[in-house]
């Protein structure tokens, strides 16, 4: 319980620092979003009409109040997940834009991350248990190969051949243009059809890392005394491989996995840009191109939030899987 309390305090502390930085950094940067917007509308070099500028500032909620009072206001907004209006998708609020994009990212990248962890770890266990045999050689060298692909290149090649040349998969989007999200079988199949290729590229390119890591941990663990003793005990092979080797070998990967889940939102950028997938990464890409500061700020906050919460979850998960970090037993 004390461990939990400590981790929780730490979580709150990091969250506060992150939220504060998210407030400070844009405000310490030179430039004013309202003038950016004016310049965009009127073309550079035109004289800026102060009244129009003020109108835009009011519209965008840009304040000239003291930093401190802005900060209090900002904290209140963060708690209510209210980040103001998006410049580019005006008049939608940032909250609305993020709300629309987040489920797609969590579904596509989240599921792919989980899948690649499960498949990679499973194959890693298999490869280590049959090490230096045929299965191991094939699986290990293949994953060393896929692991070396630059993701962007790999995704583009996949799109080019499978979607553009062969038309097996749609080129862009999360569902067919013209339909709108409903809970019908047809729509769900369409979503799977659209999501399959991006998911495949993620799984293939990240699976190798899990596989090699797990294989490595397994081989180290195989050298442990308790594994030797398990053999001496005449336990069944599967039991030894599972409870004595894999169960211990997976421990270092648990943290890595929770962290990977935390980076799902941040890491979705490349996939979503290549596949024009309407998730957070794509929204962030558009926000950056269009200098949509409120949207960027909102998305950054979501990303930081995910990483911090995942970190916290990793700590808690570790307590569950490794008895050595459990303290103060009830």
């Amino acid at each position: 319980m004390r461990y939990f309390a400590r981790r929780f305090t730490f979580l709150i502390g990091t969250l506060w620092v992150a939220i504060t930085l998210n407030f400070l950094i844009p405000r310490l940067m030179p430039g004013n979003p309202a003038s950016v917007m004016m310049a965009k509308f009127m073309g550079r070099g035109q004289p800026i009409n102060p009244a129009a500028l003020h109108a835009i500032e009011v519209m965008l909620g840009i304040s000239h109040a003291s930093l401190m009072s802005q900060y209090w206001q900002y904290l209140g907004q963060v708690v209510r997940f209210n980040f103001g209006l998006s410049y580019t998708q005006f008049p939608y609020s940032v909250r609305y834009v993020i709300g629309q994009a987040l489920p797609w990212t969590l579904g596509l990248v989240g599921l792919s991350t989980i899948l690649s962890f499960i498949i990679g770890t499973g194959l890693g266990i298999l490869a280590a248990w049959r090490r230096n045999k045929m299965t191991d050689t094939i699986v290990t060298s293949l994953s060393a190969f896929t692991n070396a692909f630059p993701y962007f290149w790999f995704a583009l090649v996949a799109v080019y051949f499978l979607s553009f040349i062969h038309n097996w998969f749609p080129l862009t989007g999360a569902y067919a243009i013209g339909t709108s999200p409903t809970f019908s079988i047809g729509f769900i199949l369409d979503v799977i059809h659209h999501g399959f290729l991006p998911a495949l590229t993620i799984v293939i390119s990240s699976m190798g890392g899990w596989l090699l890591g797990m294989r490595n941990n397994m081989i180290n663990t195989l050298g442990e005394d308790y594994v030797l003793l398990a053999t001496a005990k005449g336990l069944k092979n599967r039991w030894v491989a599972g409870m004595y080797v894999a169960r211990n070998a997976i421990l270092p990967n648990i943290t890595g996995f929770a962290m990977a889940l935390g980076f799902v939102v941040a890491g979705s950028l490349l996939t979503e840009v290549v596949f024009a997938y309407p998730g957070i990464g794509y929204a962030l890409y558009n926000a950056v191109i269009n200098e949509d500061y409120p949207l960027m700020q909102g998305i950054f906050l979501i990303i930081v939030l995910c990483v911090i919460v995942a970190n916290f979850a990793a700590d808690l998960l570790y307590v569950l899987v490794d008895p050595r970090v459990r303290r103060g037993r009830a």
């Binding site: 005449g234 169960r247 899987v321």
Partner: peptide, 20 residues
């Protein structure tokens, strides 16, 4: 194994599985 011959490893070696 263990039925006919059991072993006790050197003390200080981690002969016990830490997660069980």
């Amino acid at each position: 194994r263990w039925q006919d011959v059991s072993v006790v490893l050197q003390s200080g070696m981690n002969a016990l599985n830490p997660v069980m």
